[in-house]
Design a binder for these strands. Structure first.
Lengths: 206, 206
DNA sequence: CCAAGCTGTGAACTGTGGTTCACTTTTTTA
DNA sequence: TAAAAAAGTGAACCACAGTTCACAGCTTGG
């Protein structure tokens, strides 16, 4: 026996792996999954292409990981915003606002996570991601119904519609592409969308 | 002078061109723009690839035309539904219902037109398509405001949110992929979405 | 029927970008 | 320090799909 992975090497490998994931995420944030080449990820990370393939067996595998990481961050933020002691409609408003603000701060990433078409393996991750969002909103809507703050409704349908309305408004083709494109500022647009969504749920004015 | 295009040839060429567009549209309806190969379009139309290129200079040009055709059909249907003597909210409900039903009848095409990422040239067409939809809904919303059937609001934001809520619910990743997937039937889902949208606009129950 | 000029053909070409692999360098242990 | 084994390298490979082009087959007007 002449070689066995040592702690130092293990740490370095973990750092490299991390660097690769970070670089990839940054590139995705700039241009979306489709535009990012394996060679670019390697270059940006300061390693050779072959090395990248020592860490991730394929582009799909790499991007599945990127997707999971980015997803985890977004969902946990929203999850946090949905907790608290306020009324369900108020918490929903907070969470949706956070969702919207984060999407606007990083529109390409938001688009990549929500709407960009990706390979089947990555797409499976998206389904999980969506389902988690839907569940979070759904549960809160149901709490609102139970508390009498929202009228009875199919919470699943409603939560999907919520996400759709926001996503389309913020990152769809009609969304202002560059700040200043549109005469309305971001805060106003977000506010309008939130009103639409809350009213759509049947919440009385908050 | 020994050759000049005659009426008969002109008609045949028009028929071929039409066949190519129809085949392409059918293929797009099955799998979306990205999956469709030029060779498949040619094969389905019963001509050689070279012939296809005599009619359309590039894939982008062909698909721009396909997009325009499909688009035209959809928009004109919605436009029709928005006309009439009923109240604005009622007309919106009719139009949105039509939109939803058509999307469900041909979900892949709907996805291709609304959400699938395409080449820049085709994407420009989508922007035009979106703008037309937005304008149609917008105008009706404004009529509703004027008539006092809808509260004052930014009609542009609202119309975008409308389309987003419906699109997401019907063709997004969380939408029931295959009939029977979900416990709710189509009509129920559509009805729920429409209620959400109309309420979102602030319409009193119709 | 013939020449001119068009339309139709599909095998071959090409650019792109993911993936591989023979090789070099580094790390570890005896 | 040497052998063993892993990590790192990047030029070459390959598959795929859009595009081209030299040629065959029709149409037309004389």
């Amino acid at each position: 026996m002449a070689y066995r992975e040592t702690v130092k090497v293990k740490a370095r490998k973990a750092a490299t792996r991390n660097k690769l994931l970070t670089s990839a995420t940054e590139l995705v944030s700039e241009a979306g999954f489709r535009q990012v080449q394996m060679s670019a990820v390697a270059r940006k990370s300061g390693v050779a292409v072959g090395t990248l393939y020592k860490y991730f067996a394929s582009k799909e595998k790499l991007f599945t990981n990127v997707f999971q990481m980015a997803t985890e961050r977004e969902v946990s933020h929203v999850e946090l915003a949905l907790q608290g002691s306020q009324s369900a409609p108020q918490r929903l408003r907070n969470a949706l606002q956070l969702f919207a603000e984060r999407a606007l701060k990083n529109p390409t990433l938001a688009w990549a996570l929500i709407a960009e078409p990706v390979d089947p393996e990555v797409d499976l991750e998206r389904l999980i991601y969506r389902a988690r969002y839907a569940q979070l909103f759904e549960r809160t809507i149901e709490q609102g119904i139970t508390a009498g703050d929202l009228p009875s409704q199919n919470a699943n349908c409603s939560s999907t519609a919520l996400v759709g309305a926001i996503a389309e408004s913020l990152i769809g083709p009609l969304a202002p592409k560059h700040p200043g494109d549109n005469s309305l500022d971001q805060a106003t647009v977000i506010n309008h969308i939130l009103n639409f969504c809350l009213q759509g749920l049947g919440a009385s004015k908050t």
